[in-house]
Nucleic acid binder design. Structure first.
Length: 155
DNA sequence: GCCAACGTTGGC
DNA sequence: GCCAACGTTGGC
């Protein structure tokens, strides 16, 4: 039994938003094609982990809600699909290159927590979000997770 | 739409 | 194995 972890995962709002996740209930987090993000999902996520759902390329960009990891890591099927924009000809079913987990909808915040507010918050200065601009799966602390949850629910 | 940051590719 | 060129992310 491992300790529960907390994450922030980014999705372009126009591509897949918290509203889409609420509609779908659960979704496979396809399309991560960055090795560091892949390693985190493949090696460090567990069912029950909680996720800050971040809208990138949004107005404003920010945390839009909360999801939960509900599967063990498994190969991202889109890497094998020649029709997919995520197809990777160097991956094989014997040796998958890209991994993902399933996420379950928990909550859509009544207000987005914009990145600007995170940048200005004294307790959130250490977040990877502010330092690792392009990392689309990143670990957050329980405290960071709780603070952003409070900000998102304060109407 | 611009462009800084930065990850990836490929020639050598 | 270096590193310049290139491509992508993502805030603004």
């Amino acid at each position: 039994m491992t300790e529960k972890s907390y994450w922030l995962m980014k999705s372009e709002e126009s591509d897949y938003s918290i509203t889409d996740l609420r509609r779908d209930g659960t979704t496979a987090w396809t399309g991560v094609r960055n090795y560091e993000a892949r390693n985190l999902m493949r090696d460090q996520t567990s069912p029950g982990d909680l996720v800050l759902f971040y809208h990138s390329n949004a107005k404003p960009p920010g945390v839009a809600g909360i999801a939960r990891v509900v599967s063990e890591p498994y190969p991202d099927a889109t890497q094998f699909d020649e029709e997919s924009i995520y197809y990777d000809g160097k991956a094989s079913r014997a040796e998958p290159r890209w991994w993902l987990v399933d996420l379950e909808f928990i909550e859509a915040f009544p207000r987005i927590v914009p990145i600007q507010e995170i940048r200005e918050h004294p307790r959130l200065q250490d977040m990877d979000l502010l330092k690792r601009l392009r990392l689309s799966v990143q670990r957050v602390t329980e405290e960071q997770f709780e603070i952003i949850g409070e900000l998102g629910r304060k109407g």
